[in-house]
Design a protein around this nucleic acid. Structure first.
Lengths: 349, 349
DNA sequence: AAAAAAGATTTGATCGATCAAATAAATTCA
DNA sequence: TGAATTTATTTGATCGATCAAATCTTTTTT
């Protein structure tokens, strides 16, 4: 409550000028050692903290990144974004960055919010989640020259290497490839897959991981694969229905892989033969139910996002864009294998 | 990208002074109508947005509230806090407030963060979640005269009415009382309860809701109640174990109420007789599984929190604390009844 | 040892907005 | 109508920090 001391107070106490105090905080290297110590002592004694807004006004940098808090459709898979948000906040903090939230009701509304935060100099850049093909947000941000990184690769017409679009993503192909391999190693041959309908880039990516691993091993033909696959939108009830359909179409099943934990949980419900089910996202539900699942390392994703983002606005704005360093990061997920199902369920439907 | 216009630019364009532009934005009432329109036109034409940091520096107000992002222990019940965070961000936005996140590893660490954000004038106040008895954070905040509101009542020695501690909470007693009543109305008489161990204020509150409703109706005696109750820490596996114990100790059961959806999910797993189970928090899991659950209206909580918080720092700081208006809000939860269990499970353990 | 170069510190201006007090304009009153 | 009010608008100072350039020190070079 006592009025916070300012640089001037510190300067007075240390017998130096304002600027020297500022230098001690921002470029300690150029201050002589003994002077620096004296200033640091004064800072500690007075309990000085730089006034964030004053600094931002002068430096024209907010040291804040904006991120939209998604409405959390599902609540199961949604938890990945929560974990990501947590990891991001934590790591941003270590870099002296703050995380500012906002919400929006539609992509158009979101653009309005992006503009508001950017124009008000509230943020230096944005982190976008849940990207989709033809995403108007990224387009707008690029047009306006605003820094951003997406969690999720650009799914449009091969703009994966657009140098203006920085992104971090998890290699869903590798995740399902690995999960399929792991199942094969336990002796499974007929491995089913419950995935998402085609327009979803993420879904297609995961699906190919399964397909490729299946074909590589050569136990099944292209034709067999069709019967081993069911496509449905995400959800627990949908997973149950898909599992029932899969059991009809596939006959014998040695294992089932799902594009999400929601689907996997649903599949478990219609699983009287106790076929091993593997989910995706390693949500708390998977842990609680004892489901194997593919874990997206949100920490790695967060680290990548921050690296790219700070490189963008922290880096020297002018000059060559150091074109040799990669403009994206692909994180390899990790299969978490769990003892199968402490939860036998049998079905009536 | 083009340099943002400032008040001066707008003033020039509208043929007025800086201050008039400022007045149009902050106290439009004192500006003559025709002048105001002229200024507004200029603002629109230039696309002017006030520079947030400059304003904050001058007004000594950040219009930002800080909230700690919890590590999400469980992921199931954790989603309540996520929903709350979402509601808070959305409603704060409407009031022109921003939500800034931070993380902390312990209450002590959290105090450090609180201080950092407060001293740097990053925030005007805080929202605390997950309060507990003897919480050092609230104590520290009060000592330092920093505005805050907690989601969760103070659980310590009856400081519920401490005028310095503003809080909003959900009436767990009412929630379980209502859930018990609802079960009784379907004809259930022997209604079990799986709750949390005693030091938890929240747990005790919910438990009493069940007990009181049971005793009020008079179907059971105090003694019967002991056999109808199991206490355990939160978790899915714990819920399963508790349900097994409950079935042993209680014999016939007409319904089971749980202190959380995690416990309820666990209980469902050891529920061959398909006894109706009711959870608490109305998480997506409850919806997915078809579990009745007590819903904490996070929107109402968020509204209450913001009302109290803005009343605190938006209100005229000096003067009498308008002692007649209540310093807290108690939100009544709502029972969401679901068709019981599309999910029959049987158990082997 | 004097001149040149490098290093450390200080001074004045500035970022963009609002506050407080001063001035100008419109209104009311005698 | 002219003075007294009330209402609108403007001017100068300020919030707390950093930038850019100027001054003062120290070190290096010849």
């Amino acid at each position: 409550m006592a009025a916070m001391p300012t640089v001037t107070d510190v300067a007075l106490a240390a017998g130096v000028s304002r600027q020297t105090v500022s230098n001690v905080m921002n470029s300690p290297g150029i201050v002589r050692a003994d002077t620096r110590e004296r200033v640091e002592a004064a800072i500690a004694k007075l309990g000085y903290r730089p006034h964030a807004s004053a600094r931002r006004l002068r430096t024209r940098r907010s040291s804040t990144i904006g991120i939209r808090l998604d409405p959390m459709i599902d609540g199961i898979s949604g938890s990945v974004l929560d974990r990501f948000l947590h990891a991001l906040t934590e790591q941003a903090d270590r870099l002296g960055l703050r995380v500012l939230l906002f919400t929006a009701t539609s992509p158009e509304d979101e653009i309005t919010q992006l503009q508001r935060l950017n124009d008000g100099a509230d943020v230096d850049g944005f982190v976008l989640t849940s990207t989709f093909a033809g995403d108007p947000r990224t387009e707008w941000l690029i047009e306006n020259g605003i820094s951003f990184v997406t969690f999720g690769r650009p799914w449009g017409t091969n703009d994966m290497n657009d140098p203006q679009h920085l992104w971090v993503d998890v290699d869903g192909w590798a995740g399902l490839h690995q999960a399929t391999r792991a199942a094969q190693e336990t002796g499974a041959r007929r491995i089913g897959y419950i995935g998402w309908p085609s327009p979803s880039g993420t879904g297609e990516d995961r699906r190919r991981g399964w397909r490729d691993a299946m074909l590589e091993r050569g136990d099944v033909t292209e034709n067999d694969l069709a019967a081993l696959e069911v496509v449905t939108v995400d959800g627990v009830a949908e997973g149950t229905a898909a599992m029932q359909e899969l059991r009809r179409s596939a006959g014998v099943l040695d294992a089932v892989l799902c594009a999400s934990d929601s689907l996997a949980l649903g599949a478990m419900i219609a699983n009287p033969d106790r076929v091993p089910v593997t989910g995706y996202d390693n949500t708390p539900i998977a842990a609680a139910i004892g489901l194997s699942s593919v874990d997206q390392s949100v920490e790695e994703v967060a680290a990548g996002v921050l690296e790219l983002l700070t490189g963008e606005f922290g880096g020297h704005v002018s000059g060559a864009p150091e074109s040799d360093e990669p403009r994206h990061r692909m994180v390899t997920p990790r299969l978490v294998v769990r003892e199968f199902a402490a939860i036998p369920m049998d079905e009536s439907a």
